[in-house]
Structures are given as structure tokens and as C-alpha cells.
Design a binder for these strands. Sequence first.
DNA 1: CTCTGTGCAAAGCGTTTGCAAACGA
DNA 2: TCGTTTGCAAACGCTTTGCACAGAG
Lengths: 137, 137
Amino acid sequence: MQNRTLELLKSYHLKATPQRIEILNVIESLGHANIDEIYEVAKKKHSTMSLATVYKNITALLEKNILNEVALNNFKSKYEIVKDRHAHLVCKECGYVQDIELNQEIKHISKDISSDYNFNFENLELNIYGVCSKCSK
Amino acid sequence: MQNRTLELLKSYHLKATPQRIEILNVIESLGHANIDEIYEVAKKKHSTMSLATVYKNITALLEKNILNEVALNNFKSKYEIVKDRHAHLVCKECGYVQDIELNQEIKHISKDISSDYNFNFENLELNIYGVCSKCSK
DNA sequence: CTCTGTGCAAAGCGTTTGCAAACGA
DNA sequence: TCGTTTGCAAACGCTTTGCACAGAG
């Protein structure tokens, strides 16, 4: 797990319990994962890990902006470590999410919106749905 | 309700029941609505309308691509009548969703992606999160 | 007339909550 | 030591399902 994440935990007075660290490790290694995936993988290292613990931690980490929710059509939300702006390729078949770079043009949009629609911009989410190479075979 | 929608129902052999038409009317008039909102509003005209009917219809209409799901961070999914590409302004406070035009630049992205990532592009969803004018007062 | 759609009640799941014990700081 | 976190089990709420009846085509 990144040191930055550990520091974030400290700064928010969230204790670095083995369970919490394991959850963060799983999310980092998978890139994006839903509750069940996190639970299943984390349980391998931490046999006593409970689903309730996963839920409680996800909620806490979302509140502190250490994690980000990725709401998906047709699939359960996935979670990712907060990182710089990027877009998602989402496979409609298997639900796999892949990060791609967000090009400069799109980043501009935010400013325009704020003024055009009297909307207090915070962040932008671009999800591109389709079928991944694996599933289209 | 648009005639186009009625034709779509016919072409898919979905019966134009009063309940189904009312549900479509509610979604069209609200723009975007979640299950409960649809149920509450539709019930006003159709006092016998049941929640199960709403669920079943939403599922059927999604399958036929007459409706589109709008998955949201922190809120229940909303549904909209399928329409041309557009983006969403999403208020983090109240969950209100507003359509905005999707500019030309973004539409280009789709083609690039397909080749760059060996990804079979289908559609793109751009959600811009922030606080609406009403909530920022 | 046929077959889809509706409404109800029950079943099924995913998620949250309360609490006692464990544990990090 | 103190306050947070964990794990369990129960509670909760949303969604789905089965079935008999109604109704659209």
C-alpha cells in the first residue's frame, strides 16, 4: 500500500488495523472492486474478516475521500483509491473496469459548466461502456 | 408520451397498458427518476399501481432499450427515456440530474478508444458532479 | 381467445445496526 | 487506558418471485 494512504489514515485519525490495510491493499491491487470481491480476496489473508467490516470500512474511507465510488449501470458499485482524473472503460459483459487517461479537452469542460449552468463543479466521471477484448472473443 | 415510444412498445410486442404508459409519462415529465419517485408519482393517477409493477416494467423497458439507467454515486439509480448523447449534471446534495448538451469533442473519443484499447465501444456516459444552484444557497 | 401484464404477499438478498470483546495509539 | 474497530447475529429495506386474476391485442 502507498505510504500516502497510510498518512491519510493517520491524518483522519483512522486506525491502521490489519483489516483496513488489507482492504486497501486488495482495492489497490485489483484497481476496482465491489464489496464482494474485496471481501472474498481479503478473507484469504484474513480468515476472520467479516462482511460487516468491509462495509464499515468502505463507508469510512469514502467519507474521508480516500476511496471513490464508481457507480455502474447493471453492476454493483466498485471502489477505487482516489487518484487523478481519468476515465473508465466498462465492459457491459463482465463488468471489468479499466482506467484510461483523460485527455485535456475534457478537463476544460468543468470550467465552462460552472458558469453556463450556475453549477458548482466538483468532479467529473466519464464511463465508456462497451465490450472488452476478452469478452468479444 | 411521444408517439415514437408507443411505436417502440408495439415493435417489441410490449402491451401498452395504462400502467406502463403512466410509468413512461412520469419518467418523461420528470426527466430522470428513481424507482420510488416513479412509483409515488404514478400512483397519483393510478391508485392501484404496485411497486412490483414498476420494477417489472423498468426491467422490461431497459431490456428493450427504451429506457436507460443512470447509475449515480451515493444515490439510487435513476432512469431516463433513451435519447441522443448528452451529459448529466448531478447534484451531490439532492441528487437532481440535469441534462446538458454533449459537445463535439467528446463524441470523437469513442472512435479513438476502440482502436487504442481494443475495446468495442457502445456508449459513453459523462456525469458531472457538483452542487446545483438551489442547494448551494 | 390467448398470452401478457398486474397486484398481492411471501421470499430472497444485500446492507446496516447494536453490542460485547479485542486491539491500536 | 481510552476510544476505535471488529465480528457476530439480528434487523432492516429494497428487489424479485409465484400465482391467480384482469385485460390488451
